[in-house]
Design a protein around this nucleic acid. Structure first.
Lengths: 189, 189
DNA sequence: GTCTATAGCGCGATAGAC
DNA sequence: GTCTATCGCGCTATAGAC
């Protein structure tokens, strides 16, 4: 079956709608209509609209945190770690294209979980930065501004949710290789 | 003086608020409060909330269109054209950091001007793609997937509005050089 | 578990005094 | 050009029948 529980169906349906118009512009009536029920019925499965957003964002943020922990504690080269980070983003995004829109665009509408989300994000960025800085120190990466590198890589990886859905016939493994090549070696001949 | 007209003040104040919470979550009362007046008074200068969004987004989109036209019709090398595109994004974003948030995140809330905006964006992307494809054909750029290149470059350039404000003491010219280097040559040693 | 009905509130926008 | 007052509507969420 498509959904494990009715709550799960609400969350996934909401993610699709949030991706199109953003959390604030989507109403409980919109969500209910997309499921073929009335808005009041949603409250039998969830406590608030806010809870839906929170479930979407926090579960994704925790997936990134978990996987980054594995990558950073491995003893791979910096380049290989970065390739694993690229694969991490492509894989999570291809499995949660709608939720990733909320993670990237609607996190500021979190209420109770906002601080927790910001902590996870900050830790993730710090781990990412450490990989880059170690790569520069050990002469594996170019001696450029690490903040500019971090910004450039992260911007591209965070935008995957906009772009991946447009390429439906995409070979994921091939794409990870191509993207890693462009991000690491640039576009120059 | 800071603002040319009261309408201009409304638009710039709104852009700051839209950047924080998004168009849908900002109310006319929020905008008025930020200006120290009542919501009803706003309507002496603008016709609707929608008009404010439209003014913010369309004027920026037209700036990109205009400048891209100059870049694409020049007879520079592809690499130099790409460097000019990087400079274009950095310059417009550093002068309009708040408005760029609306351009990137709230364009879907445009009503009358949505089609026009989408046309400008599509043309811009096509021009960008043409520069990349010509660079590959003429052996100036790596023989990689041009769509992946376009996506990677555009994602980074479109995210500048999130990142530039955090680096207030930034030397713009130096940053354009650093960013161009990372985007074109990658991060590899 | 879904429904109808509705409470309580805030929204964009307008009317008209000053 | 700004104000107070308010209209008409849509919002999240709840109560209670079935």
């Amino acid at each position: 079956m498509k959904y494990e529980t009715r709550k799960d169906e609400i969350i996934q349906t909401s993610a699709i709608l949030f991706q199109k118009k953003g959390y604030s512009a989507v109403t409980m009536r919109d969500i209910a209509k997309a499921m073929g029920i009335k808005a009041a019925s949603l409250y039998n499965h969830i406590n608030s609209k806010q809870e839906i957003l929170s479930e979407i964002i926090i579960s994704l943020a925790e997936q990134f945190t978990e996987q980054m922990k594995i990558i950073k504690t491995s003893d791979d080269s910096s380049i290989n770690k970065l390739k694993q980070v690229v694969a991490l983003h492509v894989n999570i995004t291809s499995n949660n294209q709608f939720g990733m829109a909320s993670l990237n665009s609607d996190w500021m509408h979190l209420e109770n979980e906002l601080e927790y989300y910001l902590k996870l994000r900050k830790n993730y960025e710090n781990d990412f930065r450490s990989i880059i800085e170690k790569g520069i120190q050990e002469n594996e990466l170019a001696n450029a501004n690490p903040e500019v590198m971090l910004f450039s890589l992260l911007s591209t990886l965070r935008s995957l949710y906009i772009w991946l859905p447009k390429k439906e016939d995409l070979n994921i493994e091939k794409f990870i290789t191509e993207l890693s090549t462009v991000l690491i070696n640039g576009i120059n001949k």
